[in-house]
Computed example of a mutant assay.
Amino acid sequence: MRIAFFGSSLVSSYWNGAATYYRGMLKQIAALGHQITFYEPDAFDRQANRDIADPDYARVVVYPATPDGWQHSLAEAAGNADLLIKASGVGVFDAELETALPQAPSASMRVYWDVDAPATLDAVEHDPQHHLRDAIPRYDLVLTYGGGDPVVNAYRAIGARDCVPLYNALDPDSHFAAPSDPRFACDLGLLANRLPDREARIERFFLEVAARLPDKRFVLGGSGWDSKPMPANVRAVGHVGTGDHNAFFGSGRATLNVNRDSMARYGFSPPTRVFEAVGAGACLITDAWQGIELFLEPGREVLVAADADDVVRHLQELSPERAADIAQQARRRILAHHTYAHRAQQFDRLFRPAATASSEAAE
């Protein structure tokens, strides 16, 4: 099956939290025999901050971030693909692409793939004129990277023909144990860009904890934190490229995951960082959200914190031996059930019948 995929960026993780998901998912989909062309705009300095070369599992087309750029790319894709996919959060001309793609002259199936469904659905809920209210019913299917029944039901309520979660996962070829790096050595690390709907939670779960534990070391990775006041025992290291993620996650006693407000509210939305950290052998502490037990067993494979008090307690009680045991149990669980190879098989089951029918019709 020939797949045309419009996303934020496959080759750069710069201000692009979906990069790991795209790479893991599309690599495994291609391994099943599908041909992928990934269309991404030349925007937000991502091409100047590439962290991988064009991969062998997808043809990458970088188009100008202009009306002519996306229109020309969509016309090319519609004329050549069996499956047209528009991912959320491309960053430029999203509304135009999301409206135009399901109406493009083509025999292709059309899929909307939401890599941040809680945020998207919040935006739609608060805007009666939101363009997706008209666009979503025109797509053959909505895929999401998480959300469970709350997201599925919300998408069906705005007219989706169907909605299927394809959760984040682990790519064991990319995320694995690496030697500890002094740049990231700490008692608790957090890798997260500074975003408005997550900053207050990071203040509570990370910065407040650091202020209450002045004898412990904290490292904060991610873009946008330069102007943020922080306790003296927090070291902000800025953007951490994907090539350094394994070292980042493996250099601390524990790693913290803090979901954004909307993700925590909808639940069933483990971000890529959860799987990256576990794959790199980290002991994970996560804020509490519904559905965590579908991926990791609290207390045995992950430590769950309802508030800053819980994070403080976990750090005070966490011995190196227990941290190592939690990390080992978590990695075993994720490798058995939650790799991108598992997710790609799910994708293949969804689309293989349609691809086979299309091929037979062409003959």
Rank of each mutant, 00 (worst) to 15 (best):
W113K: 01
L143H: 11
P105W: 02
V151E: 11
F347A: 13
A282S: 12
P67R: 00
R156A: 15
R198D: 05
F176M: 06
W289H: 12
A354M: 06
K86M: 04
A323Q: 09
D310I: 02
A123L: 11
E203C: 10
Q329F: 10
R343N: 05
I202N: 04
L10M: 02
V61L: 00
H175A: 10
S358N: 02
D116C: 04
T20E: 06
D94W: 07
N233G: 13
R265A: 14
R198W: 00
S73I: 00
D287P: 04
V219Q: 06
R198M: 01
A4P: 00
D42I: 01
L350D: 10
P320W: 09
S319K: 14
F268C: 14
A157V: 07
F347N: 09
A18G: 08
P128R: 14
A157F: 06
V164G: 08
A87C: 15
D325N: 11
T272E: 09
Y39A: 06
Q290P: 03
A357Y: 00
L256Q: 14
D287T: 05
G17Y: 07
P231S: 07
E40M: 04
A154S: 15
T356W: 07
P172L: 14
P118F: 00
W15P: 00
A305D: 03
L296D: 02
D116L: 03
F218M: 09
H131W: 13
F249I: 09
Q346M: 05
A169M: 06
F184P: 02
F5V: 02
